[in-house]
Design a binder for these strands. Sequence first.
RNA 1: GCUCCGGUCGUCUAGCGGUUAGGAUGCCGCCCUUUCACGGCGGAGGUCGCGGGUUCGAAUCCCGUCCGGAGUACCA
Length: 512
Amino acid sequence: MSVRVRFAPSPTGLLHIGALRTVVFNDFFAKGKGGSLLLRIEDTDRTRYNPDSEQEFVDTLKWAGIEFDEGPHLGGKDAPYRQSERKEAGIYAEKIADLIEKGAVYKAFDTSEELDEMREFQRINKMPTGYFGGDWRDASPEKVAEAKAAGRPYVIRLKIPRDVKITGEDAIRGKLEWDSNTIDDPVLLKADGMPTYHFAAMVDDHLMGITHVFRGEEWISSYPKHIVLFQAFGWAMPVFVHCPVIVGTDGKKLSKRHGATRVLDYASQGYLPQPLRNFIALIGWNPGDEREAMSDCDLAQAFEIRGIQPSPGRFDLDKLKWMNGLAIRAMSVDELFDTLREYLASEITSEYWNTLEKDDELKIDPAHFVPGMTLLKEALERDPDYVRTVLPLEQERVSTLADFGPACEFFFVEEVVFDQKSVEKAFGTDHVRGLFEFLLAVDSDGFTAADWDKAVHDWAAEQGIEKMGPVVMPIRVAMTGKLSGPGLFDLMAVLGPGRVRARVSRAMEHLR
RNA sequence: GCUCCGGUCGUCUAGCGGUUAGGAUGCCGCCCUUUCACGGCGGAGGUCGCGGGUUCGAAUCCCGUCCGGAGUACCA
């Protein structure tokens, strides 16, 4: 049987990083096994429904490079893929009828006040809380008929068998076991006629022929209910894979405190989808050897459920940065150019940076990034050839696309901003004035980096200067305003004679 | 409270009865170099949560214990 997996989010809000990891597992698994991946929208809760959410999912997944074979936006042989539409199609009603006929479920007419009271009583008496039959599991047919005739709203609950062991397999942890008396009777169909997750997800997984269910480990507690349901139907179970959660650096569930939790924020911060996929897959999974930075193809090929581990993993931004930098360095100039242009032109990017407030906890200050990014964006349109020569010089010293902003800033500004400390450090030596005069005088039209290298070295030799530091540093500060950056002669060649002269002239004003 | 799931360098992880407990990231140092970075090399960092047992031998098996997390909804 060929592999068939699904990502089944509930459209209540944003797509966060933990959910993406589940998708990534699904995706690599499907690809590696030649199976298919589908998107299913679990919109059975009308009160939490968020109309923008589905679009957020589709946009995010598209950015992240996840390709679905079937889904509400694509169609497919198991359409519809929204549970609200499946409900309208009568799919769940039909399956509930099956269970009623089998006597596996019952109608319960409790009001929410009655249920609250029941739980309160259970808590006070230190009993396990939950609906273990209540007044309705064993109610007489007459009592039920009467309640129904009175038009009282009801739910349909699953009868969990009593006094037995419920056992199940988890593909990561192995055999799991519960005392059935600790499992309460879950609602399958709500009073409004909508199915619950427990019901709709299992029915759909079966109907859609899902072979492997990847879901968060928070589902382990309700797994026995799902097992009983499958047994009630007499259906074969798919393989259940309860994936460990991703937590923040403090061990708590990932939240805003730990930086971005919305996947699109990573896009906005200049992370690339491939290293993100790669990095995130490595939280809780490993290929069985010591590879880390891998291609999607290798990732898919290496992906096995047995490589997933049961303990939760933390999200280490430093390691993501490293991996992202690796990917940036691996790009060709054209690739980098196109990626950067798309990134800077994206509305998502500008919206993110324009609304971001300086946040010391996140350690991201828009004032550090935005001016350079704006200059870069303009230059990309106005002077693409110049930008193409600039990019390779900074490519190996950034870790995100956003880093190109501050890194490239000095290439595009009219007037370099001099860092006072750097000026003091570099401009103090006696030979600096002479050096600058030489730079203004030399005929540097068409100079390559090698030409600059030779010219400056020759000048230094004439002056009897052996160490290049005191020669290079003043020029560097004149060109860039600071002491660090790309190779000086490379950068001078890129700037070109006009900019070099203008910057030297301005720097001379600082010599006193 | 009850039920369940976890626990190896700061972090991500390898390990499945015998290893000097391996790799990666981050940190530090050296090399390269005009600087920063990249790259290369090296270093520090782990009493394998803790306590018992089983065994010639335990991170690995068993029991207990502690800590962390999840669930305990007509949410998913």
